[in-house]
């Protein structure tokens, strides 16, 4: 009897949907609390509104927790995969691997930048890698990284940012700086043990050059972005 490898369904769309649900609940809860000024209401209305908020908060937390656990535990995609970008580019079918690594690293970078929760689309990252990565030896890794950076921004891989975001960079620079940091980290030579420190270092470097990065990304200037990668990759 022939043995066939079972076809594993791609869990990424479901993972993405659960993350979307989690994001909506978190952001919705924050908005509700910010919008409803319970303290300024007269006594009976304040009690009623407070009770409703607590109920909604409890519901949001349980669904959020459920969605988080399902996304993390059941569906996977949270291991910090860390193959260098140049290796992934030259592998067959590495888009899923890239997207998973990109998602985990970008989530971490956004936190390091002091930004509140944003939605990160792993599906958009996968699609960008599929469209942009090329085996053409005439296109350098830094150039491919620059092209991907622009495509990731255009694909809105980071969603739900607002103007006042992030303690360490100006609001409008959050998205390009965070994406740049991850792409820089992916290109840097590092051991498994150095992964976290390297990501931290890539984030620091991106923050230090936030204005240059944001300017090059706004202009969709692949040459400038490539030059920044060439300059910084050896120093992560």
């Amino acid at each position: 009897m022939s043995r066939q490898t079972p076809v594993t369904p791609d869990a990424m769309p479901l993972r993405e949907a659960l993350r979307g649900l989690r994001f909506m609940l978190r952001r919705g809860g924050e908005t509700l609390v910010e919008t409803l000024s319970v303290d300024s209401l007269p006594k009976p209305a304040a009690d009623l509104a407070g009770a409703v908020l607590r109920e909604v908060g409890e519901l949001a937390r349980s669904v959020d927790g459920m969605a988080s656990e399902m996304a993390k535990t059941v569906l996977g995609g949270h291991e910090n995969q860390s193959l260098p970008l140049q290796d992934m580019i030259h592998q067959q079918d590495a888009a899923g691997q890239f997207a998973a690594a990109f998602y985990v690293a970008l989530s971490s970078v956004v936190r390091r930048l002091g930004a509140p929760s944003v939605f990160i689309s792993e599906a958009a990252a996968k699609s960008v890698f599929t469209r942009t990565a090329t085996h053409d030896p005439g296109v350098s890794t830094t150039r491919q990284a620059a092209n991907m950076t622009i495509s990731l921004i255009e694909a809105k891989v980071v969603r739900g940012t607002t103007a006042e975001q992030a303690a360490r960079v100006p609001g409008s620079a959050l998205e390009p700086v965070a994406i740049f940091a991850v792409m820089l980290w992916l290109q840097a030579a590092r051991s498994e043990a150095e992964n976290e420190a390297a990501l931290d270092a890539a984030t620091d470097l991106a923050v230090a050059l936030a204005l240059d990065i944001a300017g090059a990304c706004t202009q969709r200037n692949a040459e400038q972005i490539e030059a920044l990668y060439t300059r910084l990759v050896p120093h992560v």
């Binding site: 420190a197 390297a198 270092a201 050896p234 120093h235 992560v236």
Partner: peptide
């Protein structure tokens, strides 16, 4: 010393 991760550490 010219790597951010070592310099910072």
């Amino acid at each position: 010393v010219r790597r951010m991760r070592w310099f910072k550490s």
